[in-house]
């Protein structure tokens, strides 16, 4: 599925960008994780072609790369939503009812079974601890951290992102036309 996300033309345009990232680290030992991080930063996930590419450049076998990818939580083999919701379920958040927030997100965004919404706007990722325990319960959306949340507050925040995301999408499709 991951290969269908990028059109072939688009892929070619993007690969050189990845390439320069690759070469930046290529002569350093232990380069694999920074390479994967660079690839993920470029595409939002690590595609099969990226694995092949990194293998060719670094000389690390594809199987080993796959092993490293699946070991670390940061790496994704599928594309990410536009907004990544990191829902903290650390101790303090857990005690302060993080479970309820998860239900709110799932309900508000209509997520069930999958971690990414159908429109590709949101990905929900529960995380162990964001380290803002005294503001529990906490949710991080992209780089913004929201603390002392109640279900109502969270719903308002999510709706704001929804609006923003849908507006941006419609602008893009108009431009495309």
């Amino acid at each position: 599925m991951e290969n269908t996300i990028l059109e072939p033309r688009e892929k070619e345009e993007r690969l050189p960008r990845l390439n320069s990232e690759l070469w930046k680290y290529c002569d350093q030992p232990g380069q694999l994780i920074p390479l994967l991080q660079a690839a993920q930063e470029t595409y939002g996930y690590i595609s099969e072609s990226a694995i092949k590419h990194i293998s060719a450049v670094s000389g690390v076998p594809e199987s080993e790369i796959y092993g490293v990818i699946t070991f670390y939580k940061q790496f994704r083999l599928r594309p990410l939503g536009k907004y990544l919701i990191r829902l903290c379920d650390g101790t303090a958040c857990h005690v302060n009812n993080a479970k309820m927030l998860k239900a709110v997100v799932e309900d508000e965004l209509g997520l069930s079974g999958s971690d990414t919404t159908e429109d590709g706007l949101f990905t929900l990722a529960p995380v162990a601890c964001l380290g803002c325990c005294s503001l529990a319960p906490v949710v991080m959306i992209n780089d913004m951290t929201y603390g002392r949340l109640t279900p109502q507050k969270l719903r308002t925040i999510l709706r704001k992102y929804k609006k923003e995301g849908q507006a941006a999408d419609s602008v893009q499709s108009e431009e495309a036309e």
Binding site: P29, G30, Q31, L32, I33, L36, Q37, V60, V68, F71, Y72, K73, Q74, F75, A128
Partner: peptide, 18 residues
């Protein structure tokens, strides 16, 4: 890259080594 066990010193070294 997100793995709690990497706080353990030998695991941390393995992770730095890629």
């Amino acid at each position: 890259a997100g793995a709690f066990v990497c706080g353990e010193e030998t695991a941390l070294i393995a992770s730095i080594e890629g």
